[in-house]
Design a protein around this nucleic acid. Structure first.
Lengths: 156, 156
DNA sequence: TGCCAAATGAAAATGGTTTTCAATTATTAT
DNA sequence: ATAATAATTGAAAACCATTTTCATTTGGCA
């Protein structure tokens, strides 16, 4: 489960950040999304209710949230950056759907042994690792199958 | 082992690409580096012999090499892009040194089972995965230890 | 050798992100 | 509640990596 809106606000207060309407908005937008959002996407969603929040504020808020460890930041395949409300439990990996952007958390990291082994083999002190999977989620697979069968035109 | 200069040239010829002096230079620079290089780094190295190759050509050549599967492209942690001459054997992972940029190839991917398991658990069709490790290589660990002991000043 | 498509380079365009700076606002102390 | 103040905001400009444009040059084939 991800941090609740209240969690986030109180963590920010604790850090000495001011709680502005813009920040509230941005947090709500991030929270209501199951997939990662780029700064541009956050901007769009925040501004569809005509709140007039500037791009600059989006960037600054995302940066602040990242520093406070409340969101995690991805490097998307296309070189862009995505942000996702963080799940409280520490280290985990992500499974992304290529079609719809859905993100699944893989809570258990089964890689400790492998990482340790690589360290031993290479002499490196390994400080970080990332493991990202991408594919097509069940929903999008279904949608593609449906599209295919209607294209073939079983009954015409 | 990575592709040799000759391998690369002949692959390019086969693809119908022209072998220009600029391209030769760029390939040599990539080849002589054990770590990934950003376009800017390639530019710098290519131009230190005053060959006057433009940034544009660097970008275009790197793109061409990537399309020909002769280099691999990374998203660096800082958001920049790095390129590395490819090793012929297909799928593998990387171990990067945080200090000096050294890249070690991990030829064996031990993750097939885990990937398959995740697919089964989630219903995703998993098409790709990446596993990247970062840490400090033995050389840089040594250097740090040396620096530390001289700072402590064992004999002064 | 000459031709022509491909490659090059300079300059301009693009697009995401960051900085600057004056005006505004959330919080703290009064 | 109000005033003081330090943080936040937004507009515009700056930045920087990357891409596009277009006129010029060049590698490789006929």
């Amino acid at each position: 489960m991800s941090y609740t809106y209240k969690d986030i606000i109180s963590t920010l207060r604790r850090t000495g950040c001011k709680i502005t309407p813009q920040r509230r908005q941005i947090i709500k937008v991030l929270q209501s999304s199951t997939s990662h959002l780029t700064p541009a996407e956050v901007f769009e969603k925040v501004n569809c209710n005509s709140s007039g929040t500037g791009m600059v504020t989006i960037y600054r808020t995302l940066e602040m949230l990242e520093k406070a460890d409340l969101v995690c930041r991805f490097n998307l395949n296309n070189g862009h950056t995505g942000y996702l409300i963080r799940r409280p439990h520490q280290h985990h990996h992500h499974l992304l759907c290529n079609r719809c952007g859905l993100v699944i958390d893989l809570e258990d990291c089964h890689l400790e042994k492998l990482v340790k082994q690589v360290g031993a083999d290479t002499g490196f002190t390994i400080t970080e690792h990332s493991f990202e999977l991408t594919g097509i989620c069940p929903g999008c697979q279904q949608a593609e199958n449906d599209a295919r069968s209607s294209r073939v035109g079983i009954s015409t």
